[in-house]
Design a protein around this nucleic acid. Structure first.
Lengths: 168, 168
DNA sequence: CGCGTCAGTTCAGTGAATGAACTACGATGA
DNA sequence: TCATCGTAGTTCATTCACTGAACTGACGCG
């Protein structure tokens, strides 16, 4: 979707955004990066996508400065990448609303005071807008235990944890 | 992306949402629906996508109850489809921020009082959250005139207009 | 009846995704 | 020094989806 046969409408910032994060797997990779995944192998394990595709996507994301590939081989979100959070949040919210009748699959809390976050990242406890790094994610009422592949990466991801904190 | 080879992680509402709106073209079709496009031919003209692909995407969106196909052949957003607005808004905002140095390509205003909307759809004038149907969209500072194909559908879309109001 | 328009369908060609196997390379350790 | 292991990719044959152009079928109009 990205480079070959680009979207025609240059006046649409949506089309431009989709050229970067609109391809299959890309947003899931970014989501995993928010959840603390940083290593090639961990992305591959957790997402189960072909390694060749992962290579291409990571290259694109690094080229577009959504991720940076640092010296010890880790892929980490840049400031530009962190700004994708509202998109992920909106998509998860829509998916939860319409495809998870038992309730949200994940809950987001303010790590400092445990307050629930609304969909604009505002804390129900202290009322402030919580920066991404201070968000704690945990399984929500709609979470189905045992429904994930029991790989060690997923196991860690499904523990309550702070966003962006490295997995290992 | 949708049915064949579905995303594995059933506990991720993001993956579930992406199965519906994550395929190439789908979000652009939904965007056009917000902008008032309702007819097969107008989607095809405006997006320049192969008609076979358009057929598939519309079928999927109707099956998922994002659009409804009413008796006179129009495709219109359902309530579930309208709830995709925050996703579109977030993506357009990100695209504008990072790929439109001259400013936003579109501005959103409260049609009643002309107040600028922030990224949560709150009106800068009256302070209320504006429902989608009361949003007026118009070319913003980053809009590049003459950069779109001069088809009649695009021409109408680039006039200031209310969201959801039919094109014709 | 003849013509144009709209809404799709069909089809050959191409490019990307898939899955499995393979390679390159640094760290460990006998 | 050399074998072993884990990580990070690459390669490749197959499958699948997208592309673009042409075609079909239904409806409206004069």
């Amino acid at each position: 979707m990205a480079l070959p046969s680009t979207y025609a409408d240059r006046n649409c910032s949506l089309a431009r955004a989709l050229e970067v994060v609109g391809e299959r797997w890309t947003l899931l990779i970014v989501r995993d990066a928010f959840f603390g995944v940083r290593k090639f192998g961990d992305f591959a394990t957790q997402l189960g996508l072909p390694r060749a595709v992962l290579t291409n996507r990571l290259k694109l994301l690094v080229r577009e400065e959504v991720l940076e590939h640092n010296d010890n081989g880790d892929y980490q979100l840049t400031a530009k990448g962190l700004e994708l959070w509202p998109i992920l949040r909106a998509m998860m919210a829509w998916g939860d609303t319409h495809y998870s009748p038992a309730g949200d699959k994940r809950t987001f809390r303010h790590d400092a005071d445990g307050g629930l976050l609304d969909r604009d990242n505002r804390c129900g406890e202290c009322g402030g807008v919580v920066p991404v790094a201070d968000i704690r994610i945990e399984p929500g009422p709609g979470y189905v235990a045992g429904d994930t592949t029991p790989d060690p990466v997923s196991a860690r991801l499904n523990q309550p944890r702070r966003l962006l904190a490295p997995l290992w």
